[in-house]
Nucleic acid binder design. Structure first.
Lengths: 252, 252
DNA sequence: CCAATAGTGTCTTTGAGACAATATGAC
DNA sequence: GTCATATTGTCTCAAAGACACTATTGG
């Protein structure tokens, strides 16, 4: 960053200060500022289905339309300068879900800043992904008053119209977690504290929209056991009238 | 995005509008705005070494300190709302290098928005990665007046102090291209229009800071030939007094 | 015994890494 | 011929995909 933000009207600010031989020097014009927001794509897996939390907009524009939870970053230009953008994301997540900040996985997704994406004025939005465990997910809005709700990314979302460019943000988010699924441990964020191999596999299938061969999947899981990534937990879990499964937990 | 930006003093803006049962409703307080900038991490490979373009800061703070090229996004809150953030990145890239916008690979890296990262006031910076081919890279600042310069990421950068949080941004950028190297075609952006297998391998080695077995690397390359990713180009290239190598080019 | 899911094992293919031998052109 | 690099090929191992079989429970 080598910008010179326009702090006060009094300051004679120069816009930018990079390598400037070829740069057009601008007179001390004050650069107008955009609003900066955060939008959080909150995922969970319930009933072997990848779901996202949407909120119904209360004001114009897009009043009554479903949208990603989000809000403006709280900023000050003096003193402590307000909250960081990551902090803002955690705050919005917390407000949307009631979960205590820091209780689930949050990662920055992408920043959306095309001109015109908000009709009211220039808004640049830093989008985040949050992964909420099924336990927590089911607890959220157990029949809310209709202002926030889980939607299936496979059944409902494709047919919905979302506010602003939120459809694009959501698409980007789904692609991101799909891409990371096989090369990271994010799946464990979308599974209960203790889980069976089949439950973990269901989660993989929900995210990827494909099936995994149970036997090959188990082999991958064996490797994780060998590496000490997961450990057996006490108890068994029954599914129907069949043989019960062992219980596992992530080794933190 | 479901924020309500503070457009005018007259408007009764509500901060945010997510799922709000638990949200604290704020009176129509106007949210202060941050400045939003773009910083571009411009890479090239010269002499089998990964280099980054830095600019010497002309003003306070960090006057005289090397920093990433960057500047503020040009924004308006009425009319066309100004330039998009990607457009701003291309503009900064163009200003720093003299290259025509769109002539090289640009991808968003990450957005840095901790409070206090700029002592002058709240600045949120969207960082970008640009990859410049050696041909273009060598042409840039062929002995400039010292305000912009290529630095070796392996030799010089580790010992330098950079302005703001630019060291962190640069680290993130290097990690990113290292991570993408083996799963994408970005290496071809850091190689001349036509190249030999050895040159491509040198580029891989420069980025990853490791050696690749020439024979195994060639096998990977063979696969790319089979997939039609690369095609043989006319001519041969000599390196020393040894056997000349075939020339290849990326199949766009 | 039967139904249904849990768990184990085999065969094959693909790609990565280690390593040896041959080909070609400058000198 | 010699030197230096280009190019081809072999062997081994790790991991993924396809697929068959045994184990354990409820009924």
């Amino acid at each position: 960053m080598s910008h010179t933000p326009d702090m006060t009207q009094a300051e004679s600010a120069t816009i930018g200060s990079g390598p400037t031989k070829r740069r057009t020097r601008r007179s001390p014009t004050l650069q107008e500022k955009p609003s900066v927001g955060v939008d959080v794509v909150i995922f969970t897996v319930i009933d072997s289905d990848l779901k996202v939390l949407l909120a119904k907009r209360e004001g114009q524009p897009f009043k009554g339309v479903w949208s990603l939870p989000g809000g403006l970053v709280r900023v000050r230009n003096s003193g402590d300068q307000g909250e960081g953008i990551e902090q803002a994301a955690h705050r919005e997540l917390s407000e949307a879900t009631g979960l205590t900040p820091g209780s689930c996985f949050v990662e920055q997704l992408y920043t959306f800043g095309k001109a015109g994406r908000d009709p009211r004025g220039r808004v640049i939005s830093v989008a985040w992904i949050a992964l909420v465990s099924p336990d927590q997910g089911r607890a959220i809005h157990p029949g809310d008053q209709g202002d926030a709700q889980w939607f299936s990314t496979h059944e409902e979302i494709p047919w919905m119209r979302l506010a602003f460019d939120h459809a694009e943000i959501l698409d980007t988010a789904v692609e991101r977690i799909r891409g990371k699924l096989d090369h990271s441990n994010i799946a464990f964020e979308l599974v209960p504290e203790t889980f069976t191999v089949a439950e973990l596999r269901d989660t993989y299938e929900a995210i990827k929209s494909r099936t995994y061969d149970a036997r090959n999947f188990r082999r991958r899981f064996q490797r994780m056991i060998g590496e000490g990534v997961v450990t057996e937990a006490p108890g068994k879990r029954h599914r129907g009238k069949a043989r019960p499964a062992k219980i596992w937990r992530l080794q933190r």
